[in-house]
Every structure is written in structure tokens, then in C-alpha cells.
Simulated scan of single mutants.
Amino acid sequence: MSHIEHRLGVSEVNLVTRHLGLLRPIDSTKLNAAIEEIDQLYGLDKVTFDEKSDRLDFSYDASRLCIDCVEEILTKHDIQPRQGLWTHFKEEYYRFVDQNVKDNARHEPWSCHRTTSHTRK
């Protein structure tokens, strides 16, 4: 079993990978600036751009970040995700999973088998 080093703020338990297609034409200067800003987000593990498919691939700790954080930076740099039913479906699914991971990270497990703080005599 190999041990993979993750960036500071990234827990492997909460790590998710996302793929976001981008609309053409893509200004490479704006894209590089957006990727640089995304790369600085706390909780982000990695970000890459596949030129062949115009797709942004990134991994992050979903208890700290969400897809909206990345899309906000892309919008700020005037870069838009692809439009269409499939893209919309994937983005909504990503939001659902991100929220679920965030909720589960905050949830305190409960068990009826816990020991009580007082003892019976």
C-alpha cells in the first residue's frame, strides 16, 4: 500500500476529484491566472488543465472547499464552464456530495453503547 502525500489542509478521507469542462475560446493568460489563484486555496490538493479536452481537473478536501469556490474564481477571470444538461447535472451532483462530506465531517457520531460519565453503585 503506497502512502500519498497531500497538501496541508487536505484529509484523504474527504478528498474529492472534479472535472470541469470549459467553454472555448479560452484566453491562456486569464486561465493561467485563474489556475494560479485556485492553486492557492487552502484545502486544494492539485489542479491541472487538459488542453486536449479543455477540461480543468482538480482535487480538494470537500470539508474545506466546494465546487462553487473554484467556479467563483473562474468567473472572476471571465472563464465559463461548458453549458448543457450533462454539465449542469455534474455540477449539482458535485454540490450535493460536497455538502454531504462537509456535513459528515462536522457530525459527532452517536452510540447507545457509550460509557456514561457517572458510574452506578
Rank of each mutant, 00 (worst) to 15 (best):
residue 74 L to C: 05
residue 112 C to P: 13
residue 76 K to L: 08
residue 107 H to C: 11
residue 92 E to K: 14
residue 76 K to T: 11
residue 77 H to I: 02
residue 81 P to E: 01
residue 72 E to K: 07
residue 67 I to C: 07
residue 69 C to L: 10
residue 72 E to M: 03
residue 89 F to H: 10
residue 71 E to L: 14
residue 60 Y to G: 04
residue 85 L to N: 12
residue 108 E to H: 15
residue 88 H to D: 15
residue 61 D to C: 06
residue 80 Q to W: 09
residue 97 V to Q: 05
residue 108 E to K: 15
residue 63 S to I: 00
residue 86 W to C: 10
residue 97 V to E: 07
residue 62 A to P: 05
residue 91 E to D: 13
residue 105 A to S: 12
residue 104 N to M: 08
residue 106 R to F: 06
residue 111 S to K: 05
residue 91 E to Q: 15
residue 99 Q to K: 11
residue 74 L to E: 00
residue 73 I to A: 06
residue 75 T to L: 14
residue 105 A to D: 09
residue 64 R to F: 07
residue 106 R to L: 13
residue 64 R to P: 10
residue 81 P to Q: 01
residue 63 S to V: 04
residue 96 F to E: 09
residue 82 R to G: 00
residue 111 S to L: 01
residue 73 I to L: 10
residue 111 S to H: 06
residue 94 Y to D: 04
residue 90 K to S: 10
residue 110 W to N: 15
residue 70 V to H: 03
residue 85 L to M: 13
residue 88 H to A: 14
residue 77 H to D: 06
residue 110 W to Y: 15
residue 70 V to M: 00
residue 65 L to W: 02
residue 105 A to W: 02
residue 87 T to R: 10
residue 101 V to C: 01
residue 102 K to H: 08
residue 112 C to H: 09
residue 77 H to N: 12
residue 86 W to L: 12
residue 91 E to M: 12
residue 88 H to K: 15
residue 100 N to Q: 09
residue 90 K to Y: 00
residue 61 D to K: 03
residue 78 D to T: 09
residue 98 D to K: 02
residue 78 D to K: 10
residue 89 F to T: 11
residue 89 F to A: 10
residue 81 P to H: 03
